[in-house]
Nucleic acid binder design. Structure first.
Lengths: 240, 240
DNA sequence: CGGCTTATAATTGGATACAATTACCCTTGT
DNA sequence: ACAAGGGTAATTGTATCCAATTATAAGCCG
């Protein structure tokens, strides 16, 4: 099995990282030559990478002017979470319809136990952030995979694509919110296992939507009156 | 306002048309050189166009081997309709929440009247196909636009991207099915106008899903045992 | 005769060169 | 002082060239 990757694909990952990490800031013009020099390649793979990233939603393309890092405001953030919530709800429904494989069920149960262990502590420390994030991604990723729909997976991924956002966001300042959120995980799994499709769908949908609302509330204090999200807003939310 | 299009964008449209029209058949290898010669350009704009079309879902990319026209089977078709149904349901809900502008309401009412007029006839003739399709696209397009979410629009469009499919499909062989479908349009608009968000969402969702089921049933007779959809299946469904 | 190796052709990936368009700055006129 | 115009620099778009990889087919050995 050839895990064969071409150069421009690694360049794509590199530039995406530059965007997500904020080195290319929202609104900034992605100049091809400097990026090519920085990554030690010619403009050609950079161009195809920029094209790919534009299709992923990280960049916008202006003919004869190039690619610019997309900037988002709060309403677009909630837009994205709304779409994602609906699609993940569909994923939960289809997982409930098909049922979980043994491995998937085991994976989710292990993740839920991890989450329980982390959240029984009195304080949420920075060291808990990575394990919690891994747990969260395991739960959602497994449900999405259990839906057995490549198109649905792709739609969810593209709904999440956003500079500085991606799927690595954890709001860890507020322990009760995390507990409420993790309780949702338990209830979603329960609904899926008992084949309650409608309940699984609506629970998952509200769970993701709720996360979006909390993120919005958190980010609002960093926004100007135009609701454009400033890069520094992510500092205490992102885990590199 | 510069409606400035670059060359590779028109090349993208040309190649997309080749795919949708079936000149590049599903599974076929998109050879860069012949395409470039055929369109009278060099390989460079062709390459960027192929990359774009791959991101739209019309092609799949194999590193060091190039781009291939995606082939679909019936389960993937229903996958796509399922995702699209869910997303259009969300669009209907948001349209109901926000309410329709006067122009949007007028546009939909006009479209509904058109559909009524076409469907009161005893037979559906080929000449009715284009007006009906226009009516259908007007209803769905207006609802989607009324949701005021660029991300949702993009997600719906990408859920529809499929060689030989696109949004130009009308199953016109069966008049009762069309009547039932158009009746859905009336009920969806009614739910939106009366701000019944939940009802608008579920009605639209089932409406689109139902269309997918009918299309699937129609296409099944053209499929081999592997359920791969053959190009000739679209002949009496497509309106160029 | 069939499977494997190897040589050759075809095709893609990437670098470079050039053309076309746009952005920037300086000048100029009112 | 400031708006409009023009010219230069910077940047993108396309073509061409070469390298790297893969597909194809002939040859070889069992």
């Amino acid at each position: 099995m050839a895990a064969n990757r071409t150069r421009s694909q690694t360049v794509t990952d590199d530039i995406r990282e530059l965007i997500v990490q904020g080195e290319l800031q929202p609104g900034e013009h992605a100049n091809e030559q400097p990026i090519a020099e920085r990554l030690g390649v010619s403009r050609t793979p950079v161009r195809t990478a920029l094209s790919t990233l534009a299709s992923e939603g990280f960049l916008v393309y202006h003919p004869n002017r190039g690619y610019f890092v997309r900037r988002f405001d709060l309403s677009e953030l909630m837009d994205a979470y709304d779409v994602r919530a609906t699609l993940e709800g569909l994923a939960a429904r289809r997982a409930a319809e098909r049922g979980l494989s043994e491995e998937d069920e085991a994976a989710i149960r292990a993740a839920l136990a991890d989450g329980d262990r982390i959240l029984t502590k009195d304080h949420f420390e920075p060291d808990d952030l990575l394990p919690y994030r891994a747990m969260n991604m395991a739960v959602h990723g497994t449900v999405i995979r259990a839906a057995h729909s490549a198109r649905l997976e792709q739609a969810i991924r593209s709904a999440q694509n956003m500079p500085l956002l991606s799927d690595r966001i954890i709001l860890w300042q507020d322990l009760p919110i995390l507990r409420r959120s993790h309780d949702d995980h338990h209830r979603v799994l329960d609904a899926i296992l008992h084949r309650k499709e409608w309940r699984a769908e609506s629970l998952m949908r509200e769970h993701v939507y709720y996360a979006g609302l909390n993120l919005q509330r958190h980010l609002r204090q960093y926004c100007g009156h135009d609701d454009v999200i400033q890069p520094e807003a992510w500092r205490d939310v992102l885990a590199s």
